[in-house]
Design a binder for these strands. Structure first.
Length: 799
RNA sequence: GCCUGAGUGGCGGAAUAGGUAGACGCACAGGACUUAAAAUCCUGCGAGAUUUAACCCUCGUGUCGGUUCAAGUCCGACCUUAGGCACCA
């Protein structure tokens, strides 16, 4: 048909040499910022899934440019991370070399697909010029009291002597050697993200995220309204505070449970008679991985604290105190009041330990299960008789406040961000430890703190980062007292660099700021951000937190720098399974580009299904898209010498313009393609078409098939499509004077009639009633009502 | 267990505000062109009953019920499936 490889290379070269898609800061045009998640450049190359989302955003970028916007559509590399480090350990090369190779592959693939990125803004998170600013921003967190060091637990494989990520420790076993993962205590850097819980919920109002994305964020933050209630340890007078969302059931409390790590246990150790048993249980809880501990369907375990007395502050009833691992130290106060009659977990625990169960809400059967429904309050003193939760909670809160033993309290599931990783291949945390002065930030003038150039990255056997072994690097002087000091050897998590990269694109070569305020004010925010579903909770939340912090210290112009966020579906293998080497269902985009061309691959991936839904690969369907492109190509043989547009095509042309413009706004890429197929079919049916007819189709198709459309457009002698204006629908051409509408009898279609668009109702009714098949169905029936729904349907009700 | 999607022909999927379900494409079948094949073009294509044939008829958007002149679309219960969270008090 035509040599697509030659045509595609030609235009790719043209775009690169002419910087056709360069975005200029401060232009008079309206700015429009389109962002697609930058990839982790893995060794396996670009995935067809990348092609799907990049094509979609590319199409949007090309349309917006034609609509007169100054479009920023950048690309870069999120290149820190464990795989590059693993690869480097195995092959004794520096990860930056592996990364350089992978980036080269990825970029070559992207160029071969014709994406209209502004490559002048390209960077990698691993460039010292970039991570200098990631480190600088960490220092701002630190200087504003938002970064601190604290002891937390990490997944630890005792055999590999290595810290594992939650993913590598999935199922409670080490992914590499299969040993049981245990929890190891470690001092780590933390960011005070929990302080931002409320602001992160509120900020969503200033965004246009898809509802399901907003919900994902809200659920992750996990806001809950409840109360704190103080219980008192009689022997010492210490307060033991619990968090509950059901203070209405306070009369039903028969015991309390503390998390095994609860600090009160240490404080009371002198009083606790069975301290040995308690210590043993604490050890047991620690030995479990986070996975095991949170596994739901397991037996409740625990130990009673013997020798201390606690009473229910409302009715003076005895309340025994247990420790159990079903209570988490990290949420609420790390202690709960147990109401076994009305909480499933407390019920199980009570049954196992033979504890008293007092119902305080009527309904249910406590012989069988905890009753969590609503009902009339019983056995509850001043609450008796109230028959709904809300009111009972309100009354109880009033009482608790009055007596000074409790207060309303909001809790969030969102915790502070563990910001340390025990890895080599990440941004070094720019902190120094001095025996005399403690933790000290390194001076900003010393940034970037670069990773050393060595070739050995084996982790240490005590769980520290490989950096700890590079003594030249570790040993330094204290910025404050100039004495001997050690560098922090942990690095930042992968999420760090990706939390602000969209800001850097606005001003990527700035060497004295991460991005100038002017540049950020010009671009305002990311108008349209697309990425994977798996990133809509965490990555997006981290990025929003980061931006909100920068805003609060006056470094960015808005509290939310991302406006619309959408997520695309995955491209599955033809077997409807996730593509993977082991399943042998992987499609390599390079093969498709060389066999069918980039345009065909792009069209197919837009046509394959609902963009926001997963869709399986089908090479047959791909071939159909090849046929479509070929048909568009062959239309050039039908050109006539007439000027303007063909009269008989104007209606469908304008319909198509209107339809596809709307489709592109709402990510209806599959229907966008189908509408162009319909237009192409109409062109094929015509005896001949004008050059303007043809060019219109080429412009409309250009966002998804940019190479062949530019080529055919050039053959006709026109100026570039990349300089063209997106067509606007001429509504006057859409006015139809005739229309076929359906006639229903008792809800079933029994015929169709042709009407004039402005025909009066009476005449339409008559036409409908005269329709043969309609008459047949009305035989022997009495007409009750005839309704004409304008230009849509006539419906007859008969008995 | 909770949250969020999704269930429509042989397949991928359409159906802006409830108004002719199955657009567009794939696969398949028949035909044209060809020595032949590929490519291309034409025709058919939800299921069923009936008929020489056409019209026509019945059923049909995961299941059951409801609202409506009219439901893939709205409401209520449920089932299946994918993803996320998970002893969160």
């Amino acid at each position: 048909m035509y040599n697509f490889t030659k045509v595609e290379k030609k235009w790719q070269k043209y775009w690169e040499e002419n910087k056709t898609f360069k975005a200029v800061n401060g232009s008079d045009k309206e700015p429009y910022y389109i962002l697609v998640e930058f990839p982790y450049p893995s060794g396996s190359g670009l995935h067809v899934g990348h092609v799907r989302s990049y094509t979609a955003q590319d199409a949007l970028a090309r349309v917006k440019r034609m609509q007169g916007y100054n479009v920023l559509f950048p690309m870069g590399w999120d290149a820190f991370g464990a795989p590059a480090e693993q690869y480097a350990i195995k092959n004794h090369i520096h990860p930056k070399d592996a990364v350089r190779e992978n980036i080269k592959t990825f970029k070559g693939q992207m160029l071969s697909l014709g994406f209209s990125f502004d490559w002048d803004r390209e960077f990698s998170t691993t460039d010292p010029e970039y991570y200098k600013w990631t480190q600088w921003q960490f220092l701002q967190f630190y200087k504003h009291g938002m970064a601190y060091k604290a002891k937390t637990f990490v997944n630890w494989c005792p055999k590999c002597m290595s810290v594992l990520s939650n993913e590598d420790a999935a199922g409670g076993v080490c992914e590499r050697c299969g040993s049981k993962v245990v929890q190891k205590e470690k001092e780590q850097w933390m960011l005070r993200m929990s302080d931002y819980a409320e602001d992160l919920i509120k900020g969503l109002d200033d965004t246009n995220f898809a509802d399901r994305v907003k919900l994902g964020q809200i659920n992750w933050i996990g806001k809950s309204r409840g109360a704190e209630v103080d219980f008192t340890i009689e022997e010492t007078g210490d307060k033991l505070t619990v968090y509950t969302t059901r203070c209405d059931t306070l009369f039903g409390v028969t015991f309390m449970v503390l998390a095994p790590e609860h600090p009160m246990i240490e404080k009371l150790s002198g009083l606790i008679k069975n301290m040995d048993e308690v210590k043993k249980y604490q050890e047991y809880a620690k030995s479990k991985s986070a996975f095991e501990r949170t596994e739901v369907n397991k037996d409740k375990t625990g130990v009673k604290l013997e020798g201390i007395t606690v009473k229910n502050p409302l009715n003076g009833g005895n309340v025994s105190v247990f420790i159990s691992d079903y209570v988490m130290m990290g949420y609420g106060t790390g202690a709960i009041m147990a109401v076994p009659a009305h909480d499933q977990r407390d019920y199980e625990f009570a049954k196992k330990f033979g504890l008293e169960i007092i119902p305080v809400i009527a309904g249910g059967n406590i012989e069988k299960e905890a009753y969590t429904g609503d009902g009339e309050m019983i056995n509850s003193g001043f609450l008796n008789g109230i028959d709904n939760k809300q009111e009972a909670i309100k009354k109880m809160l009033e009482y608790l406040n009055r007596e000074g033993i409790g207060r309303e309290k909001v809790n969030y599931r969102l915790q502070d961000w563990v910001f340390s990783r025990q890895r080599f291949w990440g941004e070094p945390i720019p902190m120094v430890y001095c025996e005399k002065c403690g933790w000290q930030p390194i001076p900003e003038s010393e940034l970037p703190l670069v990773l050393p150039d060595v070739a050995e990255y084996e982790p240490t056997d005590n769980g520290e980062s490989p950096l700890a072994k590079i003594t030249d690097w570790v040993n330094t002087t204290c910025p404050k007292c100039h004495g001997v000091a050690r560098r922090e050897t942990d690095t930042m998590p992968n999420w760090a660099g990706s939390s602000w990269y969209f800001l850097r694109y606005m001003d990527p070569h700035n060497d004295h700021e991460f991005a100038s305020m002017d540049a950020m004010k010009y671009w305002k925010k990311v108008n349209w951000y697309n990425g994977g579903m798996e990133h809509t909770a965490r990555h997006l939340l981290y990025a929003r937190f980061w931006v909100q912090f920068l805003y609060n210290v006056g470094l960015v112009p808005s509290k939310e720098m991302i406006y619309t966020r959408v997520s695309h579906g995955m491209v599955l293998g033809s077997d409807n399974q996730k593509m993977s080497k082991s399943k042998g269902n992987v499609i390599n985009p390079d093969d498709i580009v060389s066999d069918y061309g980039a345009d065909v691959l792009r069209v197919y991936e837009m046509f394959m299904g609902d963009y926001q839904q997963d869709a399986p690969w089908s090479t047959d369907s791909l071939k159909g898209c090849k046929r479509f492109i070929d048909r568009v190509y062959r239309l050039k043989n039908k050109l006539n010498d007439n000027d303007g547009y063909s009269k008989n095509l104007e209606m469908i042309q304008n319909k198509t313009i209107k339809g596809v413009s709307y489709d592109l706004e709402r990510m209806g890429y599959n229907t966008y393609i189908s509408k162009l197929m319909i237009l192409t079919n109409a062109y094929e049916e015509a005896t001949s078409i004008t050059k303007d007819d043809y060019r219109l189709l080429l412009i409309l198709l250009n966002p998804v098939a940019p190479h062949i459309t530019e080529e055919l457009n050039q053959e006709m002698g026109y100026d570039l499509i990349s300089n063209a204006t997106w067509p606007v629908c001429d509504e006057t051409k859409l006015v139809e004077d005739e229309k076929e509408i359906a006639v229903q009898v008792n809800g079933k279609v029994r015929g169709t009639i042709n009407i004039k668009v402005d025909e009066d109702e009476e005449s339409i009714k008559n036409k409908a009633l005269e329709c043969d098949n309609v008459k047949r169905h009305l035989e022997g029936l009495e007409i009750i009502k005839v309704m004409v729904i304008k230009n849509k349907i006539v419906t007859i009700v008969a008995k």
